[in-house]
């Protein structure tokens, strides 16, 4: 298996709320290897969003280590985290998070722009990425001219543009109807089969079952970590 892409060692994230300490992440130990398709599942308030923020290098653990691609993020500066996000992670958000005033092409170009890629190369890569999600022809349109499913595909194209080591999807189907959700999930599966590493955050067991491995979070702790079949038998009732 080699070196894990993601490694969390005794990771804690503690928030101070008034006089109380809230353990959003409570001693998380987790390894995810290149090529995996992992669903992190939990109810709202379980700490899964906190975990996703730390995996996505949007936040730093209070204590413990988070090693991404061999680099410890816990001591990094804001700008170093930005660089890690830019080079290593492709984000797919529930709300797509496309910039409404930019064209699809410009949206997809953004991570490449921040990576300092030259204009012509940026355009080429962004167009290729748009082609992968089947929206190349619409490159000059604006996000509000597209359906929700199409917008999510653009955000996937944006996540893929920089060829990141990890695709991090936060409730990728949360804002979509069941038919488009299906399409998006199939697309993620396809990306996985092409060798991409995918971590998907969801509250929905049914969605989690689409992954190969499931990590269940409850009260900030990992209460299950195993393959999907095992998870399905164990948590059938709660679904």
């Amino acid at each position: 298996m080699g070196i894990p892409l993601i490694e969390m060692i005794n990771e804690y994230k503690i928030y101070i709320m008034g006089n109380e300490q809230v353990y959003a992440n409570d001693n998380i130990n987790l390894k995810i290897y290149s090529g995996e398709f992992v669903a992190i599942v939990g109810k709202s308030g379980s700490g899964k969003s906190t975990l996703m923020n730390i995996i996505g290098a949007l936040d730093k653990p209070t204590s413990g280590k988070y090693i991404l691609n061999g680099r410890d993020t816990s001591t990094m500066t804001d700008d170093e985290l930005a660089e890690i996000r830019n080079k290593t992670i492709g984000f797919i958000f529930q709300q797509y998070n496309l910039l409404p005033k930019l064209t699809l092409l410009e949206n997809v170009e953004l991570p490449l722009l921040y990576a300092g890629v030259k204009a012509s190369e940026r355009r080429n890569k962004a167009l290729k990425s748009l082609a992968r999600v089947g929206l190349k022809e619409k490159y000059s349109q604006y996000p509000n001219q597209l359906s929700g499913g199409q917008q999510q595909r653009v955000s996937i194209a944006r996540a893929l543009a920089g060829n990141p080591s990890l695709l991090l999807a936060d409730e990728p189907t949360g804002a979509l109807d069941s038919k488009t959700s299906r399409e998006v999930l199939n697309f993620l599966k396809q990306l996985h089969s092409e060798g991409n590493t995918i971590v998907m955050i969801t509250h929905d067991n049914a969605i989690a079952l689409e992954a190969k491995r499931v990590v269940r979070i409850h009260d900030g702790k990992i209460i299950f970590d195993g393959d999907t079949e095992e998870y399905a038998t164990k948590f059938q009732t709660s679904h």
């Binding site: 700008d79 930005a82 996000r85 830019n86 998070n97 910039l99 991570p111 921040y114 990576a115």
Partner: peptide, 16 residues
């Protein structure tokens, strides 16, 4: 704020 958040998430450094 949201635009800034998206840009930062995608790797925009503070200086940018």
């Amino acid at each position: 704020t949201r635009e800034i958040g998206i840009r930062k998430a995608l790797g925009a450094r503070q200086g940018v």
